[in-house]
Design a protein around this nucleic acid. Sequence first.
DNA 1: TTTTATTTTTAGTCTTATCTAATTTTATTA
DNA 2: TAATAAAATTAGATAAGACTAAAAATAAAA
Lengths: 219, 219
Amino acid sequence: MLTASEENYLKAIFHLAGKSKRPVSTNALASALQTKPASATDMIQRLSKKGLVSYHKYKGVTPTSGGNKLALQVIRKHRLWEVFLVQKLRFNWDEVHEVAEQLEHVESEQLIEQLDKFLGYPKYDPHGDPIPGADGSMAPLPSTTLAMLQPGDKCRVICARDSSSDFLLFLDKLHISLGAAIEVLDKFEYDGSFSIRVDEALPITLSSKAAENIYVEKT
Amino acid sequence: MLTASEENYLKAIFHLAGKSKRPVSTNALASALQTKPASATDMIQRLSKKGLVSYHKYKGVTPTSGGNKLALQVIRKHRLWEVFLVQKLRFNWDEVHEVAEQLEHVESEQLIEQLDKFLGYPKYDPHGDPIPGADGSMAPLPSTTLAMLQPGDKCRVICARDSSSDFLLFLDKLHISLGAAIEVLDKFEYDGSFSIRVDEALPITLSSKAAENIYVEKT
DNA sequence: TTTTATTTTTAGTCTTATCTAATTTTATTA
DNA sequence: TAATAAAATTAGATAAGACTAAAAATAAAA
Ligand SMILES: [Mn+2]
Ligand SMILES: [Mn+2]
Ligand SMILES: [Mn+2]
Ligand SMILES: [Mn+2]
């Protein structure tokens, strides 16, 4: 088992390496974790001994396939907790990170699987980032906005594209929350506005500007 | 701020000292935490320096008023998480402790207040232990069983008195879960059995033996 | 009231995770 | 290419939290 610190480093290496798995420099890692390069080197060597990262002195570090898998599981936990905090505990979009950063280290297979179920197996976190499955698989980044839908289409809200607090406050006023089920009733060509139904409530009107800033997945 | 280890020790001292605040011996503390007496002494001295416990060499240790307050806050978090695990994530009564033991150390005022709200401000945990309020106040131990109620009475399920897995499985079959709202419809004097309604569902019959083993609070 | 047993504390060691300061390697520039 | 700057590593220190073994204090028994 990994310590919280090891998990944080592994996750940071995973993120910094990106899709192309380019080597992560010691300085970049240290600065991402708000620590010193010497500490990063220490931890890199420890993770390397455990076979979780591939490391060549002065040449940077990348996750191994084993490290990759573990990093994805930590990210899975982090993002599921973020969904919980926003959808169930009514945290704001920008208040969840710190807390999820702690919760992600709680160790219990059962906990995370039941949480996933409780949340309805969400595919995206409140920032629109895909949630890895138990097997490490991930949905593609969200690309459909509410504005792309046609009357009769149904969808679920993933996240806001424009995550300014103004916009989020606006969504809150309309009771459009993360994970809300939306049905497109009508689209008015005149100004591109929509008539929609949110979570079985009475129909409301939404401007094209707002619709373009809401990422959804069709259901 | 306290480390997880400090919180665990403080909580154990609080529990072992009991209501009468009798001094806790080093051996008792070590054995409660499954560690060695030398480690317990170490930690006792650390907590003493922080003013959280009152300590006299060879004479045992008790929480100070400050330590008491902090211990109650950790217990509050522990028990609220236990309620969450059982009521929301469908954990069994006896599966929650380990996980709550980890979750209790997550640090966020907002998290615990929102969780409390989300759970409907429960007064008891799944083991029937009262949950301290944010101010440290606690409800008395549960004393009312379902069997004590009369037709027309309404209540909420606190916990099982007999927490054998047989009985818990039986309750599960009847869809009587922790926190369930129960209405007593009728009481049959012939055998002491009850007709009750659980969470607005169709009426069911409950034996006197079962009713005597369910602790409730009247609503 | 000595002697013996138990409990508790102290002394010294280990691991994890951090830091600063010094050194080494790599990259840049003249 | 040689000098300099930047990045990375190593050396050495510290703190938390655990351990074992030894010493000291207290409790129980003879
Ligand atoms: Mn973290
Ligand atoms: Mn996120
Ligand atoms: Mn704990
Ligand atoms: Mn409990």
